[in-house]
Design a protein around this nucleic acid. Structure first.
Lengths: 190, 190
DNA sequence: CTCACTTGTGCAACTAGTTGCACAAGGCGT
DNA sequence: ACGCCTTGTGCAACTAGTTGCACAAGTGAG
């Protein structure tokens, strides 16, 4: 009748799973999840509150999460993962992920720079590098505060640290690449 | 009447612009563009042929490109950028780009690994690292073949090389991060 | 010649995510 | 007690991209 969504090949659809991870760490309302996505989890996934509410409702109707009225006589709905949700998450984590490809506006601009105003682009790139440096500094401070010694880490704590490391490496990637780009062009056309 | 799409703030919508870049390099049919996206340009942007045809039609109706019957008595349509399209592209290249955030399934899995089968995940990560090493080798070979000496490069050639450098750095990022992840966990739980 | 195969184009139906807005409930200042 | 701000939830309309399929025209093998 309707297009079933239980194709076992399905690999994408990560927002559901990201929410399940967050809810397993600790039950939360929609807005709390939004704020988490703006913070620690946010450097590898981003979502608006509207999208999060929509997806939470769908997950509830599929039985992956339950909602309970948190603070009485409020409209607040506090979500938690169900056993079914935990199983869905575990299955997904164990499934293979295709290698990521980049999908970056900026790379398109760099490739096409000779069809536009290169000096203006180079100016924007300076701003971007500065922004990435700020984010890098922020992440490094988080690492310093939350993981002062990393030798004994294991399990979920180790995961959290290593994902933060990924955020740091990602910022370093951008800084290096964009710096190489601007330097090469400023050297070629002084 | 209808929702106008000429908001100057619009920053996303990169497929149009990626196609314009490709068409300025050389006019092409839909399928040729698809193949280019599977190759050189493909390591920073990916699109299906259906999506490309759809967007080309829209760009044609907006006057950014023109189509001409390439090989006579065939259904083939060969596209080229118009002056208007060139202007749109130039404007876009000169506009600021927000800093990219990651948006990666895999990062979610790494963060949530303790809620699934970690040894299975580590196995998949080994496969992914192997795949990224293969792609890295491929990109490095491209660099070696197409840019044997990079000292005198400037303009569009320099852009092409630097974007390829970005692809290489991106692959290195993945290899380093995933290797760090698997090594740390295998050390923590031998 | 004809049948299977490839190439190039495209539609239809769907999922995912964005943008703009609405509205209810509680807190707070004056 | 009144207006105003913040918090939390959510709908509506839209853009972007994916998946599955169709179909016409040329190509090559038996």
């Amino acid at each position: 009748m309707h297009k079933a969504y239980d194709d076992p090949q399905t690999a994408g659809v990560a927002l559901e799973h990201a929410l399940l991870v967050s809810l397993r760490e600790r039950p939360a309302t929609g807005i709390e999840l939004t704020r988490r996505f703006d913070r620690s989890i946010g450097f590898f996934w981003r979502a608006t509150h509207q999208q999060i509410y929509k997806v939470l409702r769908r997950m509830e109707s599929e039985g992956w999460v339950t909602a309970s009225a948190g603070d009485a006589r409020s409209t607040e709905r506090r979500y938690a993962a169900t056993k079914a949700g935990e199983r869905v998450l575990a299955d997904w984590i164990g499934s293979p992920t295709p290698a990521a490809t980049m999908r970056s506006d900026l790379a398109v601009k760099l490739r096409g720079a000779s069809y536009g105003d290169r000096s203006k682009l180079l100016g924007h790139l300076d701003d971007l590098v500065a922004e990435h440096r700020t984010r890098l500094a922020h992440f490094e401070q988080l690492e310093h505060e939350q993981f002062p010694h990393t030798d004994g880490l294991s399990g979920h704590d180790l995961d959290t640290w290593l994902v933060l490391r990924g955020g740091i490496k990602q910022e370093q990637f951008w800084i290096e690449w964009l710096t190489e780009y601007t330097a090469a062009h400023r050297k070629a056309t002084p």
